[in-house]
């Protein structure tokens, strides 16, 4: 016996969710991380804390509040209903939103560290060499922060793959829509189908190990980047 088509559907959905979440997080996480690494505003502390909340909150708490917000009476729910989209609970889109919030610190923090490590000097140098701020971002910050982006992408992706509590709260267990690998494993175990759970759980274990292996061995060779 090996992986069933339902298992493959769950794997495919998980990869889709993780890729999309990572892509979105890199786009919105970059300005947030840039701001957190440069700003001297008093808001820096509160915003930094909000971004880091998913690190300490039980996923069920995030899931609970998201469920309320996206539900028919929540502010997000009102908004999506007004747009004629219905509610986002128990939908793939809802899962993406939840995952973005849930994995945010895993993307923002490595980026923020990378931007802080670059410091202000290269930016000043670029300005005195006639590069405007956008130009400086693409020609100096981005290449210098590349290892940070790689770390952020790997961590964001892997953390989303490992998501369970938030999915269960706002996504439920709908095949092809919200049933990701972690939920599928839970299903197998609930059904006392341990051998099937072994296959998926083993795949997850190997996957997670390989990701972290790539991350930690890559780090050494990138040590002298600054």
């Amino acid at each position: 016996m090996s992986l069933t088509s339902a298992d493959f559907a769950a794997i495919w959905l998980t990869l889709k969710l993780a890729s999309l979440t990572t892509a979105i997080l890199l786009v919105i996480g970059t300005p947030i991380a840039l701001w957190l690494s440069r700003s001297r505003s008093w808001l820096r502390g509160p915003i930094g804390a909000i971004v880091a909340l998913p690190l300490v909150l039980p996923p069920t708490v995030i899931g609970f509040y998201l469920l309320l917000a996206m539900g028919p009476n929540g502010f997000l729910g009102h908004f999506t209903q007004w747009l004629g989209l219905g509610t986002l609970t128990f939908s793939f889109t809802g899962l993406v939103i939840g995952s973005v919030l849930y994995s945010m610190p895993f993307v923002v923090q490595p980026l923020q560290n990378a931007f802080s490590a670059i410091g202000t000097r290269p930016l000043e140098v670029a300005a005195t060499l006639r590069a405007n701020p956008w130009d400086t971002f693409f020609s100096v910050i981005l290449p210098l922060a590349r290892p940070g982006f790689i770390t952020a992408a790997i961590l964001g992706f892997a953390h989303t793959v490992g998501e369970f509590g938030v999915v269960l709260m706002i996504g439920g267990n709908i095949p092809d829509k919200t049933r990701v690998v972690s939920v599928q494993i839970y299903d197998h175990v609930e059904a006392m189908d341990y051998s099937q759970a072994h296959w998926l759980a083993g795949a997850m274990l190997v996957f997670s190990f390989l990701v972290l292996l790539a991350l930690y061995s890559g780090r050494k060779s990138r040590a002298g980047w600054s």
């Binding site: 290269p122 000043e124 140098v125 300005a127 005195t128 060499l129 006639r130 590069a131 600054s226």
Partner: peptide, 20 residues
């Protein structure tokens, strides 16, 4: 006038070459 529009050259104490 922002620094990148000033026709100046600036040599910093540490050469500050772009490492990449």
């Amino acid at each position: 006038v922002p620094p990148h529009r000033r026709a100046l050259g600036y040599v910093f104490q540490e050469a500050s070459l772009f490492a990449h």
